[in-house]
Design a protein around this nucleic acid. Structure first.
Lengths: 257, 257
DNA sequence: AAGTGGTCTAGACCACTCA
DNA sequence: GAGTGGTCTAGACCACTTG
């Protein structure tokens, strides 16, 4: 016997489908479950490393079938929110771990090892979004942003200069914080933001004089330019970063599915 | 009542899991179904554009539950082998279409449009795999390969030179073929090879003199270098390509999931 | 109205982990 | 042996497309 059921409460206002013109009359139940469970991670009700209730218990608690919970958990695993291990349980991923921090960093050294580098020098300023920033971050003219410049070194050599812009609306009070040298994944986790995909544009360009200077390359030298936008799990942009890098033997590894 | 069932016949010899040391005692049924149905596409028993039987019929034919067929078809859709449309049916994708050809081409023009370019000049030679080719294509020393050089133009300007290597074992008789100017996706389809993922290494390098000449750049100029390996759906490498390109406003678009 | 894929249910059994 | 996720089954109903 099937009974009527209203939509589950406690889900984020707008996910991807809400952006489409043809919104389905009733949001699929497994998507509602996914959003409700993802919200528990974003709000830190479920903390990193913690084992979440098993599928049967969750199904009973939410009043849905185990198969529906399972489908939602599969989506969350694909979104890197959780890890499932047969015989052990389901665990919340740690977004501040090295693995999570390296998620959007595709630079590799000569032997294929991940290159991140220590960001000792980081400066933050606040301002108003310019034209390019509005376009990349989908902001309206005049919206406030934070700008961070980081210089990354490896073995004493400065090899990467990055300029990041973040919407101030998402990161209120960021200017008064101490730890801005880290990666976007750790920062987003502190502000309860779940990260989804990113897109990066790679070109070969002559960097601005100040950047060329910091990198220690002659004026007019062409280096690798990285232009990256990171998006939230539900669509909107979170960070725009432009980086220039120069290091012998370095390359960018792109995986094409 | 459950009855015993032997593994389904007609599956490719080795898929990803077979490469792992811990091979499960019994291959999951939905994976066997996926492989059996993928083989029908590779062998052209199911041709591009054709509607495949519905889920219920397939389940009955294969002697499995509809849910198992559904899981297999979902994997095949993720692998871009088929397209499913609610209310219409399930259709075999055309691997020779523009969409399929552009799958591994991430170069974009100033306005974000896909850049492919016409490859009018293409030369093919055969030879024995060198050290680098053995490493990239996982070949044993001495195995035969085909090498193709293509020059791509856009608006009369040569902007990309690519050198591709393909294992001769996979493409027998390729040297006597006419159409070698196309993309790997169309070529693989003709030889009954299903393509999976690819990985591409992007660096900034000084090209060899002959390449710099063809691109029309001064000797010693640094350009974008693309080093790409395309893999079969079941793992082994199919093509190694090294390309150098130079064009104002061009960039490489990487999607990070 | 008929046929398709998409969702949802409610179980069963299997494979793995750990005490 | 108990508990977990992974697989598999066998249906029901919903949403969409087409005639």
């Amino acid at each position: 016997m099937r009974r009527w059921r209203a939509d589950l409460p406690g889900l984020p206002a707008a996910w991807e489908e809400a952006l489409l013109s043809k919104r389905p009359a009733r949001r699929a139940l497994y998507l509602q479950v996914r959003d409700a469970l993802a919200a528990r991670i974003a709000s830190r009700e479920w903390r990193p490393g913690l084992a979440v209730p098993n599928e049967g218990d969750l199904a009973h608690e939410l009043g849905v079938s185990p198969g529906t919970v399972r489908k939602a958990l599969n989506l969350m695993e694909a979104a890197r929110l959780i890890t499932r291990r047969q015989g052990k349980g389901t665990f919340v991923n740690d977004q501040t771990s090295d693995a999570a921090a390296g998620r959007f960093n595709n630079l590799r050294g000569p032997d294929g090892e991940r290159i991140s580098g220590a960001a000792d020098a980081a400066e933050i300023t606040d301002g108003v979004a310019g034209e390019a920033e509005c376009a990349r971050l989908r902001l309206r003219a005049g919206e406030a942003v934070y700008r961070i410049r980081r210089l990354r070194r490896i073995g004493g050599h400065s090899f990467l200069v990055e300029d990041a812009t973040l919407p101030a609306a998402l990161f209120s009070g960021l200017g008064r914080r101490a730890k801005i040298a880290g990666e976007i994944s750790a920062l987003a986790h502190e502000y309860g933001i779940l990260l989804g995909k990113a897109e990066e544009r790679i070109s070969v360009d002559v960097p601005p004089p100040t950047v060329a200077d910091a990198l220690g390359v002659a004026s007019g030298t062409r280096v690798m330019a990285l232009d990256r936008v990171v998006f939230m799990l539900d669509g909107p942009p979170v960070e725009w970063r432009v980086a220039h890098c120069q290091l012998a033997g370095i390359y960018y590894l792109a995986e094409i599915s």
